[in-house]
Design a protein around this nucleic acid. Structure first.
Lengths: 156, 156
DNA sequence: ATTCATGCAAATCGTTTGCAACCCA
DNA sequence: TGGGTTGCAAACGATTTGCATGAAT
């Protein structure tokens, strides 16, 4: 079902890059942890479990490469770290993130629903929208039921 | 028309903070440059024009304070710098940014138009949206008319 | 007189880069 | 073989922090 590794090798070849153990290891970790929004450091630690010799710089370089190849998608969840998620298909980055400012939980809205807004932007601002980044801040189901006074953990 | 400086003094007092020349100078620069999305360094340089003794650390600390007081709004325009814009009123941060990936120009969409989406999120995800950050990437009017092959300057 | 704020320099921290050794194609 | 790749350590750049001095209430 997952033929990405094959695509990966081909895509690297097309660009004149080599398929190395390190690159496979990084991609594999991201694939195995789909949905977790891992940070660079977290990816590094996970890769080291199966490949202790890898260097942090290699992880940074590989992530940059995967991002350029659009196999991966870089996120900013406002904690000062770069996080990544698997980009299942080219149009897949059209989902949004819900960030709970109380507990820090991050979930996703699979729908896009920005077409009408983008159409208005085209007409009113004469700006052609090609991509977008949308983050919603608020309270997740669990946190919205708590009665205690607010104590925000996350600041947008 | 602009009574913010008065509010500023009061708000500082309420929180037990002092009104210093430096804090006024920083806020004044932001007010005078409304719409420019200045970075911390740029604000520092502008403040120095009228107040050469100010230190960069003070600007950082003041910006953090203004952000906490919600007098200012922090932006991330993907260039690795923190940028700020004046937060005219508490509900004012409900506008979006249009970022041209060819020339880097940043403009704004004053309308919000996310209510229906947020209503759907409430129903489907049971997540209560309190705030959001929306960035659109694409081509501004000038750049969308150029015929040359793409040469993106900005990477989301 | 207190208490908070400032300026400076040093410290942090995530990320990038130079370079010799290494390894895939 | 040979050029891309790696690991290491040093370099970077934005932001933060410790501390003695200075200013606001």
């Amino acid at each position: 079902m997952d033929n990405r590794p094959v695509d990966f090798k081909e895509q690297l070849k097309e660009r004149g890059y080599k398929l190395t153990t390190q690159r496979r290891a990084v991609l594999d970790v991201i694939i195995k942890n789909e949905g977790k929004h891992l940070s660079t450091e977290e990816i590094y630690e996970l890769v080291k479990e199966g490949y202790p010799e890898i260097g942090l710089a290699t992880v940074y370089r590989t992530l940059l490469l995967l991002d350029n190849m659009e196999l991966v998608y870089k996120l900013d969840l406002d904690d000062g770290l770069s996080r990544y998620e698997l980009n299942r298909n080219k149009e897949d980055h059209r989902h949004h993130h819900l960030i709970c400012t109380k507990c820090g939980a991050v979930s996703e809205v699979e729908e896009d629903l920005l077409e009408s807004l983008e159409e208005q932007i085209l007409v009113k601002n004469r700006f052609i929208v090609k991509d977008h980044r949308v983050k919603f801040y608020g309270y997740c189901e669990a946190c919205s039921q708590v009665k205690e006074p607010d104590s925000e953990v996350i600041k947008p």
